[in-house]
Nucleic acid binder design. Structure first.
Lengths: 115, 115
DNA sequence: TAGTATATGTAGATTGTCAAGGCATCGCGT
DNA sequence: ACGCGATGCCTTGACAATCTACATATACTA
């Protein structure tokens, strides 16, 4: 995890990116912004995490990238979800829910008595 | 992180271990078993993940280890939580709740319309 | 010209997986 | 009573994947 005080939950970045892209074409910078906004600054994606993730996802066929214009009028690489990407998103989401529910269950384990 | 098809949510192992140990002294093998049981086989800790994690935690002062007897009567290293470990567990738990809530919020992002 | 938006690459730490091996104890079959 | 396999328990090393930190580059805007 890099530093223990991570700004992300490890292993969730790909899913988050896919989820944001599922709402329509965005460029990398915008993805990072939305993740911050929606999470109210709790989740912060560093560029050094984001771009490698985007390459991964494109290489695996979940995302498609093409150059276009950002809202500001500049050139930017716009990402959209492929059909395979949508499937992947569904599967990762289901898995996340399974696992996070399990983690929550363990956190609820009764504590030792302090006699 | 090995393979992307992990049996754990990355970065949560330390917290889970601390949580189990908080319920009273246990040995490594027992920790893995309880995590499996409580999570109904959803979370599975490999020994190759567990023992290194235990060393980490002991080295950082969250856990204390001593040789003793398991319920079966055999020798085993029994781990218990230190005061610092309890603090750490609280802080990791709070952080997990913050982050997982944020992830959930993003997963609820409205999807693109399929026209 | 300063600042913001956007993209990229490299290097390293941390974490987890896989795989293999070791020793002790229990219970069964004979 | 003996041998032996199954299970409980610990250890270690090689390797893969992810994330961070840091550094750099370029285009547009004001």
């Amino acid at each position: 995890m890099g530093s223990p005080k991570s700004d992300l939950l490890q292993g969730t970045l790909d899913m988050l990116v896919l989820r944001i892209v599922a709402a329509g074409p965005v460029h990398g910078y915008g993805i990072a912004q939305r993740i911050r906004q929606i999470s109210k600054d709790v989740l912060q994606v560093q560029q050094g995490s984001l771009y490698p993730a985007l390459y991964r996802l494109e290489k695996r066929g979940w995302l498609r990238a093409e150059w276009g214009d950002a809202e500001t009028g500049r050139q930017a690489k716009l990402y959209s979800l492929t059909r395979a990407g949508r499937k992947q998103l569904e599967s990762e989401t289901a898995n996340w829910q399974r696992l996070s529910a399990a983690v929550t269950a363990i956190l609820r384990t009764p504590d030792a008595e302090t006699p």
